[in-house]
Design a binder for these strands. Sequence first.
RNA 1: AGCGGGAUAGGUUAGCAUGGUUAGACCGACGGGCUCAUAACCCGUAGAUCGAUGGUUCAAAUCCAUCUCCCGCUACCA
Length: 741
Amino acid sequence: MSGEHVLVCVAWPYANGPLHLGHVAGCYLPPDIQTRFEKAKGNKVLMVSGSDEHGTPITVTAETMGIQPQEVVDKYHKINLQALNDLGCSWEPNIDPRGSEFGGALFNRTTDPDHKEIVAKNFTKLMEAGLFEKKVMQQYYEVRKGGGRFLPDRYIEGECPTCGNQEARGDQCDACGVTYEAFELIKPRSKMNPEAEIQVKDTEHFFYRLDLFQNILEKHAQERQSVWKSNVKSMTKQWLDMGLRPRAVTRDLSWGIPLPLDGPDWDGKCIYVWFEAVQGYYTCAKLWAERYADTDSWEKWWKVSSEGKKPRHLYFLGKDNIPFHTIIWPAIILGLNHANRGLDSSTEPCLPTNGDLHLEDNVPAMEYLMLAGGQFSKSRKHAIWLPSFLEQFDPDTLRYYLSINMPENHDTDFNWSDFVERINSELIAAYGNFVHRVLTLGNRLPEGTGIHDFEDLSLCSAEMSKLELLHQEITASLDKHRYKEALRFSMNAAQLGNQMIQNATPWLFINDIEKEGAKESLAKLSFGWRLCRFLSITMQPFLPFSSQRLWNMLGEQGDCSLQDWSSAIDWSIDTKWSDQTPSPLFTRLDLSEIIQREENLVDISQDSQEGVEHTVKGSKKIKDGKKMTEGIKYIDFESFMDVELQVGKISAVKDHENADKLYVVSIDDGSDKGRTICAGLKEYYTPEMMVGMSIVFVANLKPRKLRGVMSEGMMLAADDGRGGVKLITVDGEIETGSRVR
RNA sequence: AGCGGGAUAGGUUAGCAUGGUUAGACCGACGGGCUCAUAACCCGUAGAUCGAUGGUUCAAAUCCAUCUCCCGCUACCA
């Protein structure tokens, strides 16, 4: 399988904010692992992606920040590319170190003028082949001085014509579920600019004739049944079963690629982002060839050769993106092939043959990574951002955790304690520690001897065949895009190493190499070097940074990622050694430190919750929030009397060891042992101020652990909402434990 | 709301298209061993009514029906 052309297509991140860990697990880490693996096997890999930089949400962001859309996308393109490179994703260098005939990578952007030009040409080509139709549709229009603008449905709300809900969206009401045409919504208003007058205007648009490709796409999906994952199969089937309809390819947009057409009818209209950005896979390959290789070389990755040899196309994306890549994008490719043949809509399109653009082979779409049980969300700020993560952690720790916990078959969850647990006990304790054992033991051998002096492969045949089997299994798993399984097999090799060392007890012999049994024991230690080398090569797609560190510590030269994949089990390679003192591959993580930082993040996200809600798509949560503030809700006397308030005296105040804002307060409540209450008063009181105060506390509040310390109640304090907080104190002396009412 | 996907030991999960040994793995817990190694390693034990209920079958985690919860798409946040 060596020498194959593999095109790795990576979903284009929207340049409207930084990437978070959900993006990484879903579509940025898996293609990098695959690319590294394919390269190690000797395949010629071209990896393409870039920033998706057009569309209304970006103009909205620009408006909010008071800058130009171009500045928004410049900023996030730079941040995201930097973060991906820092994560070790192979976007640099652009040319494969083995030469441009081996491919390379390009992380481009949709605002690239060359991208725009190719897209415009394709647009014209498809239009001239009769694959578009024109239709008039109705769209909301915000009237402004000196010209208004069209608004997408998601930026409109109004009164539902069916149930009267005041917060119905432009095309559908969340309260009763009814859908309607634009003009039916009562009193429409702009979410961004509620004062503006909203009209419904006719607007003419082009639609791509997806319906022409129904049969051929069904055939194509049929051919891919055996390789596609079940989620890809079923989602594609769903679309095909519903029947494909023409889909708009133009929009009333200010920020996008203008239509390559003259005439006032087409002013203010752009090519719809989905139709444009998805072509990036194609434009990017072309531009890569133009800039870094022979101009025509892109065809090796995109076209079925004249002899019928096909490149392999892999698309990496999140589950929400599946139909775009199994229906819409193939339909565009088929349309381009059709037009290139000089045919039009009167002829039935056919599957690619020699010289045509190739369709996707596999679409290993991932499910979602959740954050502590909830969905990552840009607008709700429930996220861990990749750039800030990489400022604090070794990228390989993230790569390990996300790989071993990859959402391959269903959603998986990221949480900090699990992250620390797995890094410390698996990556470090099993893998890192094994490597460190071998290297330090080897270093302690008597002066004048080296690990290679004790090599005796005839004593290690069991280990050799086990590694050979594991190598087969890792390879098979990666070929099937089963990353978790592959990494687990690699980890099994580390475990095998620990067992081998444990059984051989080489520490008993390193100071006395003549002792009975030394030969057998030290032969195993020596084989430990080969096992480390095996690990360095097979871990490299997953953990490129630490693999390279290990590679150097083993005394090997050059770039670990350029080693042949099968050389991991090449036992004829000479054992080498490095003179440098071995140092641990990874540093242990400390959960409490991380939790503390994490707490700050959570606080920030809660504070900023209110201000961002108007941009949240689903409005259900907002409604619930608003109901609670409507009117006064009375409680009856019994309910009030259920709350047991008592007087207490503060006897001691300590810092909570594991929290930023909390004190651990000891209170004399009249009982023998007193009680402990955690209180968030650090910003307002010093311990000295508090000790001795007579305060009022809730005595029958259900005890609860706060950051590890049991809190038995709650002290009353007044809060003006503007940062002023004062404890409620008692006027004069009264016995502690007295009931307050 | 409609459509699609998911739910398996305390945690993370494999197995499910083609029903058939004791439902496999990693982490954690517990017991023992080791002491070279980053509180690391090795051996062993316990822990799962396979989301709920009903059905098909000689046999169901696996197939069918209904329900619950989570996620996605429909509907410009991966």
